[in-house]
């Protein structure tokens, strides 16, 4: 049986993102390490004035370790012809992840802005949470109608009340 991580015979959403994911992962890890070493670390860490070891020493050592591990992973997968089936990352995973991030982002933005828009502080949660919970439930795709009502009305109300009166912590 062919390893789905190393072949791409299937089509559509089940298709693996790359032909050999670990090979490309190795290259990506090595590239990350190099980007950290030559770009991010010099831009974000100031070694001037250090009296002992420079503050960039540990980040640099760890970035080089990433380069080394990326290289090892790449070399291992140049030679590897595994027959062991693995699931790996698929296109549908990437799409689903993007949809989930979008749902959480919409909820967060509503929580942040609605209170300011309508001029009532602490009201954002009352709009953002029901919409967020509806979107999260929608992501499941298999929930019956009553669950949407429960998650959109009962759950946010209980959470809001619990934090407001139970823990004396205002929500956004």
């Amino acid at each position: 049986m062919a390893d789905p991580q190393h072949t791409s015979h299937s089509t559509g959403l089940d298709r693996p993102v790359e032909i050999n994911q670990d090979l490309f992962l190795g290259i990506a890890i090595a590239a990350l390490g190099l980007a950290l070493t030559f770009w991010i670390i010099p831009a974000q860490v100031n070694d001037n004035g250090s009296f002992g070891l420079p503050p960039s020493l540990a980040p640099r050592a760890l970035a080089w370790l990433m380069v080394a591990m990326g290289a090892v992973l790449t070399v291992q997968n140049l030679k590897l012809h595994s027959t062991e089936p693995r699931r790996g990352l698929q296109r549908r995973d990437v799409i689903y992840l993007a949809a989930s991030v979008l749902a959480v982002s919409i909820s967060l933005l509503l929580m942040k802005w609605v209170g300011a828009w309508i001029g009532r502080p602490y009201a954002g949660f009352l709009v953002g949470a029901p919409i967020g919970l509806t979107l999260f439930t929608l992501l499941h795709t298999g929930a019956p109608t009553w669950v949407y009502l429960f998650n959109a009305i009962v759950a946010p109300a209980v959470i809001y009340a619990g934090f407001w009166w139970g823990l004396s912590l205002p929500l956004p």
Partner: peptide
Amino acid sequence: PKGIFAASLGAFLATVGVDPETASPRFT
């Protein structure tokens, strides 16, 4: 290699913040 990469990425991200010896900010 993946295990060591994960540990080193975690340790790298632990350096975010003010350096304890020189008090200079790192990756902020």
